[in-house]
């Protein structure tokens, strides 16, 4: 059910202008020009890369179920579009708290640190010195060791404060109680083993995919909250988790040259890449960088005209927009859509 809500929200934003596969690529976090552009054009940052391991069969099966329930349908074979009932359902359901674009899997590093910290403290308060660490990754182990020593983990003040920080910050999150339970039951400690996904799904009468997504939502909401209102000990665990480097590697190289003052043609020649690829990179930059100099490429009144046209025609299809503004190139329209993503 949870996953189907997610699909409704995604295709509500797509507004019937993309195929069913576009949602799949988005959830997988595909790093192609098209998917990255979709994220910007349709303001889908929240859902990017939430389920990197999802299989296409499972995805299509869930989409098919939406069709079966009368919430969605296929238009001209290639577009996946919500019905009125589907739109109502999407509008009526609670906003999901995902923030995939900024975490991209790093949220799991945060959780691994947390789980080893809690396990260590749980044994330490019982004065049990040795235990088999739940996290086997040596980088995580070293990180946590350093963290614990730095924060004088044996002091009562530390344990009390971190417990209060966890409790206070979780209480304020706009997520279900059952999702907070998932989080705490994935933690393990002295005489208190964690629960497997199977056990949690069974307990909550849910599916594996749904409990894992609900867990992910808590992590994202929690991290967002910790970045907004830092907590002394918890926020340290979130260090370096949020992605500051938002461009793909190749787009970053293009951006560096662009900032040095090279023209698109020069960059294309230097990097031995096609002009269209460099244009893709610029679109990616327009989408991700707040200080992108859009005015170097289009006049201010053209930007406003496109924004107006999108609202009038209720479409972000390039072909439609181009027909209404034939003097602009596709590249210029794409730049505007990318830079003005939230419309």
């Amino acid at each position: 059910m949870y996953f189907q809500h997610l699909l409704l929200q995604i295709f509500h934003k797509f507004g019937g202008e993309r195929s069913v596969s576009a949602g799949f690529h988005l959830l997988k976090g595909k790093r192609s020009g098209q998917t990255i552009q979709d994220v910007g054009n349709f303001n889908l940052h929240a859902f990017f890369g939430l389920t990197p391991k999802l299989s296409k069969e499972k995805y299509l099966d869930q989409a098919e179920q939406l069709v079966g329930k009368g919430y969605a349908t296929y238009k001209d074979e290639q577009f996946f579009i919500l019905t009125n009932a589907g739109r109502e359902k999407a509008n009526g359901s609670k906003m999901m708290q995902f923030n995939g674009w900024y975490y991209r899997g790093n949220e799991h590093i945060f959780f691994k640190r947390l789980s080893l910290v809690i396990q260590s403290l749980s044994y330490s308060v019982q004065e049990v010195k040795s235990f088999a660490p739940i996290q086997k990754n040596e980088d995580i182990q070293l990180w946590v060791k350093h963290y614990l020593v730095k924060n004088n983990y044996k002091s009562n003040a530390f344990i009390q404060t971190i417990r209060d920080e966890i409790s206070d910050s979780l209480k304020g999150l706009p997520v279900e109680e059952s999702s907070l339970n998932l989080l705490l039951y994935r933690l393990t400690g002295f005489n208190t083993p964690g629960w497997t996904w199977e056990q949690l799904a069974r307990e909550q009468e849910s599916t594996l995919l749904d409990v894992q997504l609900a867990f992910l939502e808590v992590l994202h909401a929690w991290l967002d909250a910790l970045y907004k209102g830092p907590k002394y000990y918890l926020s340290q665990l979130a260090e370096g988790i949020r992605i500051e480097q938002l461009l793909t590697e190749s787009a970053q190289k293009t951006a560096n040259l662009f900032h040095q003052g090279y023209t698109l043609e020069q960059i294309s020649a230097i990097r031995r890449l096609k002009g269209s690829t460099i244009e893709d990179h610029l679109v990616e930059m327009a989408m991700s960088l707040q200080e992108f100099p859009l005015e170097q490429f289009v006049a201010q009144q053209d930007v406003e005209a496109i924004v107006y046209a999108v609202q009038q025609m209720n479409s972000k299809k390039l072909k439609v927009l181009r027909d209404s503004m034939p003097e602009l190139s596709y590249f210029q329209i794409r730049l505007i859509l990318a830079a003005k993503g939230v419309m």
Binding site: S122, N181, L187
Partner: peptide, 9 residues
Amino acid sequence: WGERLSVLL
């Protein structure tokens, strides 16, 4: 979750 937190810590 709150009770579990106080069992763990």
